[in-house]
Structure formats: structure tokens, C-alpha cells
């Protein structure tokens, strides 16, 4: 097989991988050429996998639903954190250890930074974990850094009474404050729009309702 034929074989296999010419017969290769082409296809597969990990947090609907996107409407209050931590008789490093035990990748210096420099990047879910570990409510740890109301489609949905009902259900299910549950569900709506979908208000509310109902039904099943 010539170099050009090998190139053509690889091109054909790459196109087949992409599903563009799935039905085209693949070229026959001798043993040496097959090993060469397969080693390149293996690298191509690894590269494909590298390109198909999780999306960025801000466009990941699950991350949004779990409160993993920082929200200026529900931000960690540095002074309140210091107060809560001291009342719980915890050092910064001890609070970090407790968060690590829950699965968070946090170090003592992160706690120091939240208290003394910036806490704007702390996501609602992590604030909830800090509140749990210091024995205070989420409301006691949060502040609204951005009081203006965004005037867009998502904000319009978020002002509806049906959304309010979903917020109450989600807060009850997840043990969150009303403000944090609202923040999380609104973030979930924004992730849907971020992802490129353009559903109307009814569809947005319907999909949120389905998610909340799915978790509710499982919780009911597990209740004694």
C-alpha cells in the first residue's frame, strides 16, 4: 500500500467515525498498515473523548440545578462567615476539613480568602455546605450583591406564581432557604437558555416541574 493509499484509508476511517460515511465500505489494509492506522485512530479516539467531557459549569443544567454556579443574588457574606465559624469554634482549616469530608475540594487558605479577600466565587451549594457545618441557616450566611432585577425572559418566568410554587417545593425537598432554592432554579433556567435552547415560559416551567416531581416521587418512595 502506498503512502497516499494509507492517507486515504485513515481519512476514510476518520470520516466514518464522525458518522459522515457510515455505510461506505472501509479499505482493506495489510497487517503493518492496519497497525499504523489503528494507532492513529486510537489517538483520535482519545482526542474525541477529551472533547466530550462535561460542559462548562455555566451551561451545565445539572450543575445549575445543584447550585454550583456562583450567584450575586445569593452570595457568601464574609463577615457572617467569620461569625458563624467562630461561634462553631472551628478554625479555618477545620472548616475546610469538614467540607472536604463532604466531597468539596477546599483548603484552609480558601476559607481565609473568603473571609478576607473575595467570596464572590462561592457557589450556593457550597454556602449550603458551610451553613450545615457551622450550624447556621443559609440566610444568615448570604447577602444580595446585585439587587437589580434582570429584565429578561428567565426573570419573567421567575416572577410567576407557578415558579414560586416550584421554589417552595424544591426548598422543602433539598432543605434550602427560599432565596437559595429560587437562585438554584433560576440558574437552572438560565443554563437551559445558555445551552442554545429557546423554550417559551410554559415549556421552561414544565421542564422544571418535571425535575422537581421526579425527585419528589423518589423521596416519597424512600420515606418509611
Amino acid at each position: 500500500m502506498t503512502k497516499d493509499e494509507r492517507d486515504e484509508a485513515l481519512a476514510s476511517l476518520l470520516e466514518a467515525r464522525a458518522g459522515n460515511v457510515r455505510d461506505k465500505p472501509q479499505p482493506l489494509l495489510n497487517e503493518g498498515d492496519r497497525a499504523e492506522v489503528e494507532s492513529l485512530i486510537e489517538v483520535a479516539d482519545l482526542l474525541w473523548e477529551a472533547g466530550h467531557g462535561a460542559p462548562p459549569l455555566e451551561s451545565d443544567p445539572v450543575a445549575a440545578l445543584l447550585g454550583l454556579n456562583p450567584d450575586p443574588h445569593c452570595a457568601l457574606d464574609a463577615k457572617a462567615l467569620v461569625r458563624a465559624r467562630k461561634n462553631a469554634r472551628l478554625k479555618g482549616s477545620e472548616l475546610a476539613e469538614r467540607l472536604v469530608a463532604r466531597g468539596w475540594e477546599v483548603q484552609g487558605r480558601d476559607v481565609f480568602r473568603w473571609e478576607n479577600q473575595s467570596a464572590a466565587d462561592v457557589a450556593p451549594a457550597l454556602i449550603k455546605a458551610i451553613a450545615d457545618e457551622t450550624g447556621v441557616s443559609v440566610e444568615q450566611l448570604t447577602t444580595n450583591l446585585q439587587a437589580d432585577v434582570e429584565n429578561d425572559a428567565v426573570a419573567e418566568v421567575a416572577r410567576s406564581s407557578k415558579f414560586e410554587g416550584l421554589v417552595e417545593r424544591w426548598a422543602r425537598l433539598q432543605g434550602l432557604s427560599h432565596a437559595m432554592a429560587a437562585s438554584v432554579l433560576e440558574s437552572r433556567l438560565r443554563a437551559t437558555v445558555h445551552r442554545g435552547d429557546r423554550p417559551d415560559a410554559g415549556q421552561l416551567l414544565q421542564s422544571l416541574d418535571a425535575l422537581v416531581a421526579a425527585v419528589e416521587s423518589g423521596t416519597r418512595r424512600n420515606e418509611p
Binding site: 450543575a63 445543584l66 454550583l68 466531597g103 475540594e105
Partner: peptide, 11 residues
Amino acid sequence: DWAALYLKHRD
């Protein structure tokens, strides 16, 4: 803590 677990394993 689902959020922590998801953040760690979502990729």
C-alpha cells in the same frame, strides 16, 4: 452532598 459529588465526577 450531591453538588460536591457531581462537581467531582461530572466530567
